[in-house]
């Protein structure tokens, strides 16, 4: 390494040194000077390349103990994160199963509510069924005829029935005579229209059996007509009053 001459020399006059530097800086086109310039280019290029390399590269320049430390850190982080993943997955599964259970319970409750609403007459119902139309021009029918018809329909498996504008439920009663009939206290006038949802053919057949509704109506001079429909609507509603005396018996005391 001969470029740096380290022989001690007495300090010179500063002005003299600056002048010397200026003189050395003056361009002297010689082969060595050009070569020096090329070396300068190479040095600058190499410096920038190395600076960029150092800023780009991450782990290559680190010492072994640093690498070990980083590796241990990463390992620890990985362990921590995977245990976190496990925890989160467990709680996710828990929440999902709880949601599913709740959804199933809700669906079951909703189904039950619908079935009971149709049974209790608090919800409209639609489906296949028949429309029984009883014309009574001579006003000969009494409440029994309607009751018979409803009982016959129930026997044939009707799931929802309404007479005129009155829904037929467990507490429905029929009364009146001579063309002034009442259903649960509400007056109905001929022609009496009974709508029933169920298996339409079974219901129609039940109306027309010998000695059945049609026959007994006709015997007193009235006319019964059965229409089979793929869709009838039972939309008369009742409001349910909470029972005053009856209380449910707890299933598990």
């Amino acid at each position: 390494m001969s470029g740096a001459d380290t022989r001690p020399r007495p300090p010179r006059d500063a002005r003299h040194a600056w002048a010397r530097l200026r003189r050395a800086g003056a361009p002297r086109p010689s082969r060595s000077n050009l070569l020096a310039m090329v070396l300068g280019v190479v040095l600058g290029f190499a410096i920038i390349a190395q600076v960029r390399q150092t800023s780009v590269e991450g782990l290559e320049n680190l010492r072994e103990d640093e690498l070990v430390r980083i590796f241990a850190d990463v390992d620890q982080d990985g362990d921590r994160l995977s245990s976190e993943i496990r925890d989160l997955q467990t709680s996710l599964e828990l929440l999902e199963s709880r949601t599913t259970g709740e959804e199933e319970a809700q669906r079951a409750a909703r189904d039950r509510l619908e079935a009971l609403s149709i049974l209790a007459g608090t919800a409209p119902a639609a489906g296949p069924g028949i429309i029984l139309r009883i014309d009574d021009p001579q006003k000969q029918l009494d409440g029994t005829a309607l009751l018979d018809a409803v009982e016959e329909l129930r026997g044939a498996g009707a799931e929802a029935i309404q007479v005129g504008d009155v829904r037929v439920v467990a507490t429905t009663w029929f009364g009146g005579s001579d063309g002034a009939l009442t259903v649960s206290g509400a007056e109905v006038r001929p022609p009496y229209v009974i709508t029933a949802i169920g298996d339409a053919n079974t219901l129609a057949g039940a109306m027309q059996i010998p000695g059945g509704v049609t026959a007994s109506v006709r015997r007193v001079g009235a006319e019964a007509e059965v229409q089979i429909r793929t869709r009838v609507v039972v939309d008369a509603l009742l409001t349910v009053k909470a029972p005053q005396y009856a209380r449910p018996v707890p299933t598990n005391p």
Binding site: A24, G25, R28, M37, G40, V41, G44, I48
Partner: peptide, 10 residues
């Protein structure tokens, strides 16, 4: 001078 220019150029 010329080497300095070379350095800057590089």
């Amino acid at each position: 001078m010329i080497p300095a220019i070379g350095l800057a150029l590089g």
